[in-house]
């Protein structure tokens, strides 16, 4: 093989093939996806998915900046493939349309921590999320998630008593006497984002499992553990 131009052509053609197949074709097929409009059982028109409200979108930026994606996936594999649905990480598999507003899409490749696709539904409590971020050992003893003390401010309790959003901590994690732990704006945004993560609406290409099946899934989930620690 001594003829340079032939080599060049071959090199370019081979990559061009997958560039068309795995870049252009997916963009052609999925790049124009739009939200689904349907009418639910109560006769209400539902549009899904919807863009996130402002605070949750700011929280997505915090999530990106702190690199949460390196331990938490946001994708639910289909029933019978892994235990995603049995663990209660989602009611149905996720599909491309669930992600049309995500920039960047943070599907994740690691589950050092649990999947977060549906965390907003599994754990709606703001207090829980804030304590968990302040120190994961408070809510999930034995977790390897790092604490995020820099998302909180430890400050002296004001003259009017503890502020409304101070964390209710006790035992070894409690703030020193006369001090309180207050979430920063970033912490609140991050929690708003986590609580916005919900994929429980059905889509034509990914319907919710029928009544009986979903009951099974739910009961096995509650039998094993609380959703929060899963």
């Amino acid at each position: 093989m001594n003829y340079g131009p032939l080599l060049f052509l071959g090199i370019l053609f081979t990559l061009a093939s997958s560039w068309v197949g795995l870049v252009l074709m997916p963009n052609r097929q999925l790049g124009g996806l739009t939200p689904d409009t349907s009418t639910n059982a109560a006769g209400v028109v539902v549009v899904y998915p919807q863009a996130r409200p402002g605070e949750a979108q700011q929280g997505a930026e915090i999530y990106r900046s702190l690199g949460c994606v390196y331990c938490h996936s946001q994708q639910v594999r289909p029933e019978g493939f892994g235990s995603d649905i049995e663990r209660g990480w989602g009611k149905r598999r996720t599909v491309s349309r669930d992600y049309i507003y995500d920039k960047p899409v943070m599907l994740g490749t690691s589950r050092t921590g649990p999947d977060l696709t549906n965390i907003g539904e599994r754990q709606p409590s703001v207090e829980w999320h804030l304590s968990h971020l302040y120190n994961p050992q408070i809510t999930s003893k034995g977790s390897v998630m790092p604490p995020y003390p820099f998302l909180f401010e430890v400050r002296p309790v004001g003259a009017r008593g503890p502020s409304a959003d101070a964390l209710k901590l006790s035992g070894e994690h409690a703030a020193p006497a006369g001090f309180e732990v207050v979430p920063t704006a970033a912490a609140k945004q991050l929690v708003a984002y986590l609580r916005s993560l919900k994929t429980s609406s059905p889509l034509p290409e990914a319907p919710l499992p029928r009544k009986g099946e979903s009951d099974d899934a739910k009961s096995s989930a509650t039998a094993t553990n609380t959703p929060a620690s899963k």
Partner: peptide, 13 residues
């Protein structure tokens, strides 16, 4: 950025 999961395809390509 392209839309939705196309990003994931391009990312892993």
């Amino acid at each position: 950025p392209v839309r939705g999961t196309v990003q994931a395809a391009v990312n892993w390509w």
